[in-house]
Simulated assay, not measured.
Amino acid sequence: MPEVVDQVALARLYGEPLFALPQDLYIPPDALEVFLEAFEGPLDLLLYLIRKQNFNILDIPMLSVTKQYLVYVEQIRKRNLELAAEYLLMAAMLIEIKSRMLLPPKKVAEGEEAEDPRAELVRRLLEYEQMKLAAARLNAVPQYGRDYLKASIFIEQSLQPRFPEVHLVDLQEAWRDILKRAKLVQHHKISRAELSVREHMSIVLKKLQGRRFVGFEDLFDPEAGHPVLVVTFIAMLELAKETLIEITQAEAFAPIYVRLAYSPS
């Protein structure tokens, strides 16, 4: 520890106070950089200087404001010459206003006030301040994506499957297959019977009741004989015509199924 202990330490190295910089310490020129407050332009900087020191914007002390403004511009010019060009233009305007204020005022007619060289600058500052306050109020309004997000819910709806339509050729082939099966169990007993299409329509609907799918062949009874098979087939066609049943198949050349027509509730 040094003999003088009431000094302010420059830093701490491994927990020990450092009162003087080492002789062999090398600090690169660009290691430390002072960042000024970010301004959106010359008017923003000028308004900041006026409000910071509570100056009356209608009676701006041009000498004090111009000096402070030039100090900021000099710092900006060292870091970015292109950025400083816009600020230098405002600096020239401030110097011009200050020069005009040193000159004797122009003579005006009686009853009129002499024009203030600061009037145009004051007008621009007031307009800029109004726009800046309005922008701040708009920015305070909650924005979608910044302050909140919309909740989204994905609902997976069960869609009614749509099967390919059964072509007439497929239906004819299925009907021929049933006739072939009926010939294998045909009887030679001749009898007279009255067959009702409406009655067989009811029989088909009863067989489909409470079942999702029924095979096309399962709706026919080969032992009942050709007349019953024909009437049953006609009854099935009538039901399909009246959209009371649906005749479907999963894919081409696949087995044919029959079910009750779907009616949305």
Rank of each mutant, 00 (worst) to 15 (best):
I95V: 15
I95R: 15
E96G: 09
I97G: 07
I97L: 04
K98A: 14
K98I: 03
K98W: 08
K98Y: 14
R100S: 11
M101F: 11
M101W: 06
L102R: 11
L103W: 05
L103Y: 09
P104K: 06
P105D: 11
P105H: 03
P105W: 02
P105E: 13
K106E: 15
K106R: 10
K106I: 10
K107Y: 07
K107C: 08
V108P: 02
V108D: 07
V108F: 05
A109T: 09
A109H: 07
A109Y: 10
A109E: 15
E110I: 10
E110Y: 05
G111I: 04
G111K: 01
G111W: 02
G111P: 10
G111D: 07
E112K: 02
E113P: 00
A114G: 13
A114V: 14
A114K: 12
E115G: 01
D116Y: 09
P117V: 05
P117K: 04
P117I: 02
P117D: 13
P117H: 02
R118G: 05
R118A: 13
R118S: 13
R118D: 05
A119M: 12
A119Y: 10
A119K: 14
A119C: 04
E120S: 06
E120Y: 06
L121D: 07
L121S: 05
R123C: 00
R123M: 02
R123H: 05
R124L: 09
R124G: 00
L125T: 03
L125A: 01
E127I: 02
Y128G: 03
E129W: 04
E129A: 07
E129P: 01
Q130C: 04
Q130K: 13
Q130P: 00
Q130Y: 14
Q130I: 07
